[in-house]
């Protein structure tokens, strides 16, 4: 499959990567907000993961991967968690779920199912990291709850992203630009 690298002009690709990095940095700050009801903690810790999932496919891959690396450490710093946890998680996600192989369907339900699969994989990956690499205990309930909350807010998040993409330029700007389009 021909990658997005062939069709996105370099300056625009760089711009997408920078925009995505800045937006994700803001989401990292927002993800620190949490609420507690009846001993249950509701948080948006997985919010930046959704941004990685919906990373612009036309973004410069080198800049993107560097941006995600730095964003991971930023998230570790903000959440006071083990250093390296988020960069490893997001980079592995980004390298496996490569932008040039992504589905660019605009169908919300399809994207929702995709997000559920990705979040479930991130959930399992982080538990495995905590158990086998960090040798430390993880609050599975809290992790599961943050995944479920993200699934609930995903449609809103997706629509905001779509709307912003249209507002700030051509809708296709944030997607893989195929010559067939």
């Amino acid at each position: 499959m021909a990658g997005s690298y062939d069709y996105t002009p370099a300056p625009r690709a760089r711009r997408y990567a920078i925009i995505a990095t800045v937006v994700t940095a803001v989401l990292c700050v927002i993800s620190q907000i949490g609420m507690t009801f009846d001993g249950l903690e509701f948080g948006f810790l997985m919010l930046p993961t959704l941004a990685i999932y919906l990373w612009p496919t036309g973004a410069n891959p080198i800049l993107s991967v560097l941006g995600i690396f730095l964003l991971g450490f930023f998230q570790d710093y903000l959440s006071y968690g083990p250093t390296g946890l988020w960069p490893v998680t997001w980079l592995v996600l980004f390298l496996i779920y490569r932008p040039d192989l992504r589905d660019t369907s605009q169908f919300l339900l399809w994207q929702w199912v995709g997000a559920a699969i990705v979040l479930a994989c991130v959930w399992a990956f982080q538990i495995a990291l905590a158990k086998f690499v960090l040798a430390s205990s993880v609050n599975v309930k809290s992790l599961t709850l943050s995944v479920l909350i993200m699934l609930v807010v995903f449609p809103v998040f997706y629509l905001i992203r779509e709307y912003s993409a249209r507002l700030f330029g051509n809708r296709n700007d944030f997607y893989y630009e195929s010559p067939a389009r």
Binding site: I33, G43, S79, G81, L85, A130, N139, S142, L143
Partner: peptide, 12 residues
Amino acid sequence: SENNGPFARSAL
């Protein structure tokens, strides 16, 4: 902000 995440619990 209170961070009651799965890996750490801290507050700012």
